[in-house]
């Protein structure tokens, strides 16, 4: 039996397999290096970075729910220069492609952070976070208003030659509108989806379970939502889609690829089991080999719907 070709291309970014990790669930990489062979991954996507250091939200920041969890971490981070100094050198000893998730409070912030990272050869692509549900400034607003969305993607596009992946918000009336806008603005790919805006309340104290009051729902609970959005977007655009939302098993990843995703990201599953992403890679390869499917392209978007 021949080994299937798992390679995926996102512009100039070449992934040896279609599995990355979802931004925010894998830290900056070193945190999991003792448990996961990072070079097995198709790419690592690090936690969102803006121009300046950011403190994030108060605690409690996460809350477990049935089949998932809420988070409102609020994008704390070391800022662009802090990331370059503190974390980029770590990647010298690895060959795994690096995707850096970027965000801003203003359009100018997005441009500046894209420009700073454009000079960093080790960074393979930028994922533009226009859909964080947990930061008041910018964040979700840029992801749900298509005019603002275009403004941000345009602004980043002119400042970087690196492949751009735009991470879409799930809470929009029509995902196709945003997927097309990303493609028209010159993005190399979209990632679908960010966590879904959600809330949980302690009935005894009658207070929200999160300090931020609301957060983003992730985990198996959102997987069918994400599959539907990927399926819809895949029929509207020709650029690759990185599918994510509750992927725990190889079967989950295959479902996204059949729906139309070229690649996938494992997120919350890394908390449950840090070896999830590697197990997904191995299982996808074994399943494709068993079915005689030669490449991801051969499988992608083959849903009979």
């Amino acid at each position: 039996m021949n080994k299937p070709d798992l390679k995926v291309r996102i512009g100039s970014l070449e992934m040896k397999n279609p599995v990355t990790v979802a931004s925010g669930t894998f830290g900056y990489g070193p945190e999991y290096a003792g448990l996961v062979d990072l070079d097995r991954l198709g790419a690592i996507t690090v936690k969102g970075i803006c121009t300046e250091p950011h403190v994030g939200n108060a605690t409690p920041r996460t809350f477990e729910t049935a089949g998932g969890m809420l988070n409102a971490i609020g994008l704390p981070g070391p800022g662009a220069q802090g990331f370059i100094k503190k974390y980029l050198p770590f990647y010298e000893k690895y060959s795994v492609p690096l995707i850096v998730n970027i965000w801003g409070k203003t359009v100018e912030d997005y441009s500046r952070v894209a420009e700073i990272f454009n000079d960093q050869a080790r960074i393979g692509a930028l994922e533009v976070n226009v859909s964080c549900p947990n930061v008041k400034e910018g964040g979700a607003l840029y992801g749900t208003d298509v005019n603002l969305f275009r403004t941000v993607v345009d602004a980043v596009r002119v400042r970087t030659q690196k492949p751009l992946i735009v991470k879409l918000a799930p809470n929009v009336a029509d995902i196709k509108v945003f997927a097309r806008a990303a493609q028209e603005c010159g993005a190399e790919a979209v990632s679908i989806m960010n966590s879904y805006p959600a809330m949980a309340i302690d009935i005894e104290t009658r207070r929200p379970q999160l300090a931020n009051r609301t957060g983003g729902l992730s985990g198996p609970a959102i997987k069918p939502i994400a599959v539907k959005l990927v399926w819809e977007a895949a029929r509207a655009i020709t650029i690759p889609i990185i599918g994510m939302g509750g992927i725990y098993t190889p079967e989950d990843a295959l479902e996204f690829i059949i729906a139309g995703a070229s690649a996938v990201a494992v997120g919350t599953a890394s908390f449950t089991d840090p070896s999830s992403a590697v197990r997904v890679i191995e299982g996808v390869e074994a399943w494709m080999a068993a079915k005689g499917i030669g490449s991801i392209a051969e499988l992608r978007g083959t849903v009979q719907a």
Binding site: T25, G27, Y32, T59, R61, T62, N71, P76, P274
Partner: peptide, 12 residues
């Protein structure tokens, strides 16, 4: 959540 320093849930 993660237990390994990645998710920044348990901060003080």
């Amino acid at each position: 959540a993660c237990g390994v320093g990645a998710c920044l849930t348990c901060v003080i």
